[in-house]
Write a protein that binds this DNA or RNA. Structure first.
Length: 748
DNA sequence: TCCCCTCGAGTTCA
DNA sequence: CTCGAGGGGA
């Protein structure tokens, strides 16, 4: 195309003329393309037109009207990006760091698929580009929406910005599926990054630490015309929602993506064995410095898509792919101090305060030391020169200290035996013993006042520490734990209250405005008339206070699983909370059952067999994945009068929805209990289980009168016999497959 | 009883 | 992202 004037130099008048010209031209070509199927210009040229219009409208927002063919730019709210729910979640990958991990990955795939030693299995290996994941949605070949990964479930709408990236077609080439969500990585080449930084310096604007940050900063511009001026690129490597398959294998699909107009990540390679994968890893590693872009590792994927589907997903990661990372960049610095943080469970975590140092393009000033054993193992002392790296290129960690550079007077770190926040005794113990210790601490607290100084070192205090983590026993009286629990309560997977982040919660807590969950929901009532005072006391604008109240109101109704998770009961995280919600369904039912079970447990504190403790307790332990350890932590929570009161005060403020089972419409086995026994032939045990669960069935370990189906494989033993005795429905493996055949639902 | 898998709880910086 | 530990199969 002929050189066009740079948009930045246009006057408003010229811009109007240019806009009219572009709109006319695009409308003309669209008509040719769609109605007459006889385009006059190439897809690439057409894309260039659309792109120019997008940029123009971003630069002169007044021009973008409803008439514009783009009809997107200018609509973006100035306040920030809209949210986009991913129809298919954007998950992360599992990681391999050593050769052995790769062998384990291959072995676990083969095990899951029950492949014989000789059976072939192909993988595709590709470089893992260090950029930002992006999902781009096309409908009938047209780009309609682009979103960042976000938390995997919900990202930010960056459509306007993505339309300006040259590597990303606005219109797909050739015959495209009706719906196609292309996923890949937005990145910046190293040379482009250097040039950009040079230009930024000349303009007196901020420079970026590394290409990844530059790409992230450029993509998240509210003004798309700025994004347009940044040298962003895109590699496609997978897909989300899809109306028809792109191929039978990963490699075919990659090829198809290339045909549709995307750049795919190269160099890639087909591999059959762990050794071949490792060879690829080393080859790419050798080329790493000469590749034009940064990579942080390589990715291995099972090639056949039918096998990918059988392998499915763990909670957070697919079983059919893994990332193999290159060793992290390291740097040397001085350890200035070791501070102690108190977590919501009372865990005391030592954190290294470092002389700020750049590692992998980011300035690091703190790093976790995990626990006291770790400090002793690495013999890290204040004043030491230490080697720092970013694990998986993200989380800073201390690799080792350099003994030769240690100051002569450096002393081994003495881990405190008392909580720095409340002065309570801090002990290393498992849950049961913590109770005993808590009583001791309460006595001490009453007698000893606030600051009980550490008098002895950790090793001297106990002959045999039980558990690695040292925990504050202050529990309910520890302010540090209280505020951490509240922060957890409003966190993303819990109540997810926007505008009530970590810092604000700390502030409200220290002001006494919020001391327990229920206070969040009475905040407005208590403070409404004094809104001006909040504004002056907190330094928030009136608007943001109103926004906060709106966000709180929006969460006054909440799902049971989120509520359970939010309470922060030890060992009850996302997955366990969901299990509990699924089992008890309503909050009343759950609460009453927990209180009853806690009473039963209090009467039988030492009994190991759940059935002998009581009915409610046994019911809890019978839920798969919940054993005595988890159950007892829940009992400890409900035994506490204070916790029950806190919960009830909260429940008075909110509405808890009955748990909704994930959609399993059309599944023939919803709510059925299935037991697998014997050796299954077409699938492995875990695969059979995952499949059954995704269809809404419950998979049990042993046969009982409650069992609906017993699926009998080869060489079935006592379970099959028992099933016959009980007169249960017995299915062969084939009958089971026929029963569920073809019926699939999306996993939770 | 051991071993594998998964989960929870801890963590940083932009 | 990593580590430790619980749950459950073998």
């Amino acid at each position: 195309m002929a050189a066009l004037p740079a948009i930045d130099t246009l006057t408003l008048e010229d811009a109007q003329a240019e806009h009219a010209r572009l709109v006319a031209e695009i409308t003309h070509h669209r008509a040719l393309y769609y109605q007459k199927d006889a385009p006059e210009i190439s897809d690439a040229d057409y894309d260039a037109l659309e792109k120019r219009l997008t940029v123009l409208e971003a630069r002169f927002p007044d021009l973008a009207g409803a008439h514009s063919p783009t009809a997107t730019v200018g609509a973006a709210p100035a306040a920030g990006f809209g949210k986009v729910k991913h129809k298919v979640p954007m998950l992360s990958l599992g990681n391999a760091f050593e050769d052995g991990d790769v062998a384990d990955f291959v072995a676990s795939v083969r095990r899951f698929l029950v492949l014989d030693d000789g059976a072939p299995l192909e993988f595709v290996a590709e470089p893992k580009i260090d950029g930002l994941s992006l999902s781009i949605r096309y409908e009938n070949g047209q780009l309609v929406q682009a979103a960042t990964r976000g938390d995997g479930a919900e990202g930010e709408d960056v459509t306007a910005n993505v339309r300006t990236i040259d590597d990303i077609p606005n219109t797909l080439r050739g015959k495209a599926p009706a719906v196609l969500e292309v996923r890949g990585e937005v990145y910046m080449r190293r040379e482009d990054f250097l040039a950009l930084n040079k230009a930024q310096t000349e303009k007196g604007e901020k420079v970026f630490a590394n290409p990844r940050n530059a790409a992230a900063g450029s993509l998240r511009q509210l003004d798309a015309s700025i994004t347009a001026g940044r040298p962003l690129r895109f590699f496609a490597y997978t897909w989300g929602e899809l109306s028809e398959p792109l191929g039978a294998t990963q490699s075919e699909s990659r090829q198809r993506l290339a045909e549709l107009g995307f750049t795919i990540s190269e160099p890639s390679r087909q591999c059959r064995t762990a050794d071949e994968l490792l060879e690829y890893y080393r080859d790419i590693g050798a080329q790493r410095a000469t590749l034009p872009f940064d990579i942080d590792g390589v990715v291995y994927k099972v090639d056949r898509l039918d096998l990918q589907e059988r392998l499915g997903f763990r909670t957070r990661t697919p079983r059919w792919a893994t990332a193999h990372k290159y060793p992290a960049e390291q740097a040397q610095t001085i350890l200035r101090a070791i501070s102690i943080q108190v977590g919501r469970t009372g865990a005391l975590t030592p954190v290294a305060e470092l002389e700020p140092i750049t590692v992998g393009g980011v300035v690091v000033s703190r790093a976790t030391l995990h626990n006291e054993d770790e400090i002793r193992r690495k013999d890290v002392r204040v004043g030491d020169t230490v080697i720092v790296q970013r694990a998986g290129d993200v989380i800073p960690q201390i690799v080792t200290s350099i003994a030769a550079l240690r100051p002569a007077d450096a002393q081994p770190f003495v881990f405190p035996t008392h909580c720095p926040a409340c002065g309570s005794l801090a002990v290393r113990s498992t849950a049961e013993k913590a109770d005993v210790a808590a009583e001791t601490a309460a006595v001490e607290g009453a007698a000893g006042g606030e600051e009980a100084p550490p008098t002895e070192t950790a090793t001297e205090a106990e002959a045999e520490p039980d558990g690695v983590v040292r925990r504050c026993t202050g529990g309910l009286i520890c302010p540090a734990q209280a505020v951490e629990r509240l922060i957890h309560f409003t966190s993303r997977l819990a109540f997810d209250i926007e505008g009530l982040g970590i810092e604000r919660m700390r502030l409200f807590f220290s002001q006494g405005r919020i001391r327990e969950p229920a206070d969040i929901f009475t905040l407005e009532k208590r403070e409404a008339e004094r809104i001006d005072r909040i504004v002056t006391m907190t330094g928030f604008g009136k608007k943001s206070v109103e926004k906060l109240f709106a966000a709180i109101e929006a969460r006054r109704t909440i799902g049971l699983d989120r509520l359970i998770y939010a309470l922060g009961i030890r060992q009850v995280g996302e997955a366990t909370a969901k299990l509990l919600a699924r089992h008890y369904l309503t909050v009343e039912h759950w609460r009453d059952a927990m209180i009853k079970a806690a009473e039963e447990r209090a009467a039988q504190p030492a009994e190991r067999k759940p059935e002998l403790v009581g009915e409610a307790y046994a019911e809890l332990c019978a839920i798969e994945q919940i054993g005595v350890g988890v159950a007892d932590d829940m009992m400890a929570f409900f035994r506490e009068e204070h916790n029950r009161a806190v919960l009830d005060r909260l429940l008075a403020q909110i509405t808890v929805e009955t748990y909704e089972r994930p959609s399993t419409t059309g599944s023939p086995v919803v709510g059925k209990t299935v037991v697998f026994t014997g050796t299954l032939e077409t699938m492995g045990r875990s695969e059979a289980k995952a499949k059954a669960e995704s269809l809404g069935a419950k998979v049990a370990g042993s046969v009982s009168a409650k069992t609906d189906y017993v699926v009998v494989g080869a060489d079935a033993g006592s379970k099959a016999t028992k099933a016959r005795e009980l007169g249960l429905t017995i299915l062969t493996e084939q009958e089971w497959v026929d029963l569920i055949g073809g019926k699939t639902t999306t996993p939770e």
